[in-house]
Nucleic acid binder design. Sequence first.
DNA 1: ACATCGTATGTTGTATGATGAATTATGAAT
DNA 2: ATTCATAATTCATCATACAACATACGATGT
Lengths: 239, 239
Amino acid sequence: MSGTENQALGMRPKLSERVADQLRDVIQRGDFAPGAQLPTENALVEKFGVSRTVIREAISCLRVDGLVKAHQGRGVFVCEDISQQPFRLYSKGLNEKAHIEQAMELRLCMEVSNAELAAQRRTEADIQNMQDALNKQHAAHLKGELGQTEDFSFHLSIATATKNSYMVDFLRFLGPVIIPANAMHQMEPDILPGYQDSLRSEHLAISDAIKLGDANMAGAAMRKHLRQGLRVNSGATGN
Amino acid sequence: MSGTENQALGMRPKLSERVADQLRDVIQRGDFAPGAQLPTENALVEKFGVSRTVIREAISCLRVDGLVKAHQGRGVFVCEDISQQPFRLYSKGLNEKAHIEQAMELRLCMEVSNAELAAQRRTEADIQNMQDALNKQHAAHLKGELGQTEDFSFHLSIATATKNSYMVDFLRFLGPVIIPANAMHQMEPDILPGYQDSLRSEHLAISDAIKLGDANMAGAAMRKHLRQGLRVNSGATGN
DNA sequence: ACATCGTATGTTGTATGATGAATTATGAAT
DNA sequence: ATTCATAATTCATCATACAACATACGATGT
């Protein structure tokens, strides 16, 4: 993040973002200890030579990032605990390939655990949701569609069955990174049905194991499924 | 997040945050399709009955959150892909206990995978780092310290050995949520050494399995270790 | 001496108006 | 119909003023 993408396109980055980046740096470098007070807005105005509007927008960014906390009438202070800081992908200078690979690995380890937990905790309603998602995906396939949305719904239904809302949130968070990587778009029309069939059988294997309550089997099926998908994707993109 | 904690303390939430929350809601509810243009600043000024300052700060928040993207001279648009959106814990209305439990479960499933991956990919340097962390933790224990920082360093060294930087980032992200939950602070002084010994033996079991390259054993040792820690923590807090 | 209260000062939050910069729409000239 | 200059729109920045909140200080009364 931090507005570097603008600069890459030759666009002049916004002043407030440049100031925010500089402030972020000095904070993360430790120039201001946790709990310490930042210079006042007026001081920063003089220091950076910009208007108070820009300073306030920059500090607002740091606030959303969970780095500082502003108190009216007192000042702006560096957060004591960084527990409010969000988690971002793509933060470092990773190329597209490494980014997707590592994010995919993160998803794999989480979804395998999800399958295991779902097998232990699923209720009848969860099983019904999984079944619905599978049916809708099958219907989409029969209509000649890719059914990626329904595919994702199936995985979400498993995450929901873990009764851990963070699992759902995290899968939703990783979802967009994964979906575009799917190689179904570039797939030859004649091998697509075969791929969708194998997809369906893999999903059924996962679903059955979760219904049975067999955690090990569910995890293994999910791992096999995701590794298969990873193989197809990387193969199609020529890696 | 979303400034709800202010309201809980009886503090009047900032206008800009309230506006930001409302805008966030209508966007996430789908009132504005991805790629659609938001009303202009002036329109929002009239709609909300606040100043441009507030509207701009609110939009700035949404920008940092990755929900919208502002283009000078064109307008503010809802992001097409939400892949830039950060992942946050504590986002929903979870009580402290459920929050920690669910976050801990997220950590568990990730660290088990980390141990497995580390066993497969560790280099000599990784093994050295793990060993260093263990030694430092032991030294801290002998000095009568809790050694929590060194404990965390050990786990980080495992994450580093996976060669997946997101694993390290994510563990760092979860770290602050977990650390305060540690019950060592409230522990009776006479049982602390015994606990530290068991901690050390669990760490050694993990470390040995990773050195041997036995993924299954490493994963099992890590799972046992974290479940043990979870048990101690929840027991100490009376749950 | 001590506690209480009001005031002064400093800081962030909000409002307002004006100007700059970038994009898009408009329209005239060829 | 195309091209080009101009106007209109919109976000970005600047400057100023005032409001809301917090703290420090001193006056006042006991």
